[in-house]
């Protein structure tokens, strides 16, 4: 573990806690979470539904303010959302009133027309939506919509992507395809990625490291390094061993 300290952290989460006051008492959602994410790393945050991992991501993205603690990105405290780091939503956050091109170009309003068109074309192609440039989201399948949202995010060239269970609403076959798409895109565009999921297999297939969260209040139980080179063999003994570790960590024996 000690070798990695040399590279500076891209994202550092420092002693983050989050409490919501309710009528009778306060609910603690996050409890002193600390985490360092390196530049270009893909970290999965794994935990059961409702454990507060989405809250964590929203704080890191600048949409929520933590009760105590802070988040630094490139050494600067996060105070709000920023186009250098884009959030990809759990539900489909593509704008239904814009075409594919309109969605991909949404964040490019500061660019000239020529450069904007060029970027749009590039990212439409990257996510495999060529031929659908003037289609509206309602004419696309769920997987295509999700790719469109990723393209919209990538088009503004952010250094960090936050993905909040992005494939949760897709069927399991599309989900597998989307994962390999994400890995392919990641090879083309080196980004730091924080990926929230409740799917153990998904985290082992994608992540460099998996951060296992406890149930509420969310704390980090354990960080598991996934030391399998890409492309990953899903039936290799190492894959299965790592998956078993996560199953046990999350409190599930993997027998039904």
């Amino acid at each position: 573990m000690g070798v990695r300290v040399v590279t500076p952290a891209k994202v550092s989460i420092r002693d983050l806690s989050m409490r919501f006051p309710t009528d009778r008492s306060t609910i603690e959602v996050l409890s002193s979470v600390s985490l360092e994410v390196k530049d270009g790393e893909l970290v999965c945050i794994l935990g059961p539904s409702g454990c507060g991992k989405s809250t964590l991501l929203n704080v890191v993205g600048g949409f929520l303010k933590a009760t105590t603690g802070e988040v630094l990105i490139d050494g600067q405290a996060v105070t709000g959302p920023d186009p250098r780091r884009i959030f990809v939503f759990q539900e489909r956050g593509v704008f239904p009133w814009l075409t594919v091109e309109g969605n991909v170009g949404f964040g490019l309003f500061r660019l000239g027309a020529a450069e904007r068109a060029e970027r749009i074309a590039h990212y439409v192609k990257l996510v495999g939506l060529s031929g659908f440039e003037s289609a509206y989201p309602q004419e696309l399948s769920g997987g295509m919509k999700q790719r469109l949202e990723v393209a919209r995010a990538l088009a503004v060239n952010p250094d960090v992507l936050f993905l909040d269970e992005p494939f949760g609403a897709l069927d399991s076959i599309t989900r597998l395809v989307m994962r390999s798409e994400l890995l392919r895109i990641r090879r083309a565009e080196k980004k730091t990625i924080l990926f929230v999921t409740h799917d153990i297999d998904e985290s082992v297939q994608l992540a460099d490291r998996v951060v296992v969260m406890s149930t509420r209040p969310a704390t980090i139980r354990r960080i598991v390094e996934i030391d399998i080179p890409h492309p990953r063999d899903l039936s290799s003994p190492r894959y299965i061993a790592l998956r078993d570790i996560l199953f046990e960590e999350i409190g599930l024996a993997h027998k039904i």
């Binding site: 709000g80 959302p81 920023d82 704008f95």
Partner: peptide, 21 residues
């Protein structure tokens, strides 16, 4: 809220957010 969040995330100011989202 998701649309507003996305708009803010891409750095839109209030007038742009109003017009485009």
């Amino acid at each position: 809220a998701m649309y507003l969040q996305a708009g803010r995330n891409f750095g839109l100011g209030a007038p742009r957010l109003l017009a485009r989202v």
